[in-house]
Design a protein around this nucleic acid. Structure first.
Length: 487
DNA sequence: ATGTAC
């Protein structure tokens, strides 16, 4: 039960798909399903994350399957790399199924520059980026907000930032949800969360968050790459990975506590207290979704400010070859969120609350939520790897609608804990290793950097190959790191 | 992820 280490009875469905039968554990309402190849499934078994997939399958109102992506690993209650859909009428929302960093996500910008044009300017660009992008644990951001402005950010998201001079209307068209989740209500957010958030807009934070200058190293799908404006081998692009900082974290903490307090009254039988949840149709469930939307909107505004900082840094080094208009946003995705969406489940259309925790939306071609520009190729799916190897861009595919509630993986996935990673390599050795690979780095804390060593992560190539082969998303390009800026 | 634990 719960957190035991007993052997999970995995059934192999095909080379990339495994199933945990609902008979495995008392209370499972649906089977578990995990995407992995032979090597990844071994890593996943070692981590015990499959027990969490089985635990999530007991959630009240869960439909279809409890899903695990190939980058799955142990998390708070729910695994990171997990997807769960609950019936919108009779089901629950669980804050642990969204994660502490509400709307942690990724945005990718293109440039008109190629590798040869930045040679000799790399150190200068790295300094400019590090200066332009505030970072570090608890670090303040580019823009301190008044309480009134903070409320506007919570409701308007990325559009607030554009209106305040950080970017363009065009940026919003290629941001998931146009950078604003509906239903945000600042009155459902605690004063403590507001206080933490007011100082942090436009900051990278720490942990696995970063800004990275990369080049297009390999193109899998030329037509899709061109549609995204990243169709030239050697082309320079920039990835930003960040979320809602202390603001979203405080919202998550507040509502996890509320859910724990309320749990006894609901009478659910939960196999793990970290699955604490709120009925979607209860006042508390609605309040969480309204507060979560505030966190999500703050994160979109945050990435919009950070992107502005990147554009300023590039233009300070390259002048008119890297003006803001010459650095278009390709797309912005979130990978820690819950969304109300409609899917066909067991032959019936149903509205469900899709929990994506370390999972990226991957809508296929022709989906009405996609901007015109991406209608024929599918939604850009941005998958950062680790800082030493590579990252990937994919396009959402039809299989995601049929199999995974419009979702796929979100990154490389940890294979080592933070403490294990720290023990395995010294800051000096890691910096030497990255230099040897031609990666220039600027980092706020060298001791925290080792927690993010490439060896702490699974091989992202193997992860994306699985979702590609399973038909959830199609590979478009592979990116190699040039400059990494981190907390 | 995170004012890196209550």
């Amino acid at each position: 039960m719960g957190n035991s280490k007993e052997k999970i009875p995995l059934q192999r469905i095909d080379p990339f798909l495994w199933r945990i039968p609902a008979s495995y554990q008392e209370g499972m309402r649906v089977p578990g399903v995990v995407y992995a190849d032979d090597e990844l499934i071994q890593q996943i078994l070692d981590d015990n994350a499959l027990q969490q997939v089985a635990n999530v399958a007991t959630l009240p109102g869960i439909v279809g399957y409890s899903l695990g992506m190939p980058d799955i690993h142990w998390g708070y209650g729910f695994p990171v790399g997990g997807v769960a859909a609950t019936d919108a009428e009779t089901g629950v929302v669980s804050p642990g199924g969204i994660g502490f960093d509400i709307n942690c996500g990724v945005r990718l910008m293109a440039t008109e520059l190629v590798r040869d044009q930045i040679r000799g300017q790399v150190e200068k660009l790295a300094d400019a980026l590090f200066k332009a992008l505030p970072s570090g644990v608890g670090g303040a951001g580019m823009r301190e907000l008044t309480t009134h402005e903070m409320r506007d950010v919570m409701v308007q998201g990325a559009a607030w930032a554009v209106e305040d001079g950080y970017g363009f209307e065009e940026d919003l068209e290629v941001t998931e949800e146009h950078g604003c989740l509906a239903g945000a209500d600042p009155d459902k957010v605690s004063p403590m969360a507001m206080q933490r958030g007011r100082k942090q807009l436009g900051s990278l934070g720490s942990g696995n968050h970063f800004a990275e200058v990369q080049y297009v190293e390999h193109i899998y799908d030329q037509a899709a790459a061109e549609a995204m404006g990243i169709g030239q081998v050697g082309q320079i692009v920039v990835t930003i990975h960040c979320g809602s900082r202390g603001f979203g974290h405080q919202i998550a903490e507040d509502y996890i506590k509320l859910a724990e307090v309320k749990q006894a009254g609901y009478g659910f039988k939960l196999v793990d207290r970290q699955l604490a949840c709120l009925p979607l149709q209860s006042d508390e469930g609605k309040a969480y979704l309204a507060a979560m939307a505030c966190g999500a909107n703050f994160a979109w505004a945050n990435r919009q400010l950070l992107m502005h900082g990147v554009r300023l840094a590039f233009s300070s080094v390259f002048g008119r070859k890297a003006r803001a208009k010459e650095m278009p946003l390709v797309y912005d995705v979130c990978h820690n969120i819950a969304k109300i969406e409609e899917y066909e489940v067991d032959g019936q259309k149903r509205w469900v609350c899709v929990h994506r925790k370390g999972a990226t939306r991957a809508f296929p071609p022709q989906h009405p939520a996609l901007p015109e520009r991406y209608r024929s190729i599918g939604q850009p799916v941005l998958i950062p790897g680790d800082m030493g190897r590579y990252s990937f861009v994919l396009a959402g595919a039809q299989g995601s609608m049929e199999q995974s509630f419009g979702s796929c993986c979100h990154g490389a996935g940890r294979r080592q804990s933070r403490t294990a990673a720290k023990k395995s390599i010294s800051p000096r050795d890691l910096l030497d290793q990255l230099a040897a690979r031609g990666v220039t780095i600027r980092v706020h804390s060298k001791s925290l950097l080792t927690e993010e060593a490439p060896t702490a992560y699974k091989d992202a190539q193997k992860i994306v190959d699985v979702v590609h082969n399973a038909g959830l998303a199609q590979l478009v390009v592979r990116l190699k790191p040039v400059i990494v800026v981190k907390g």
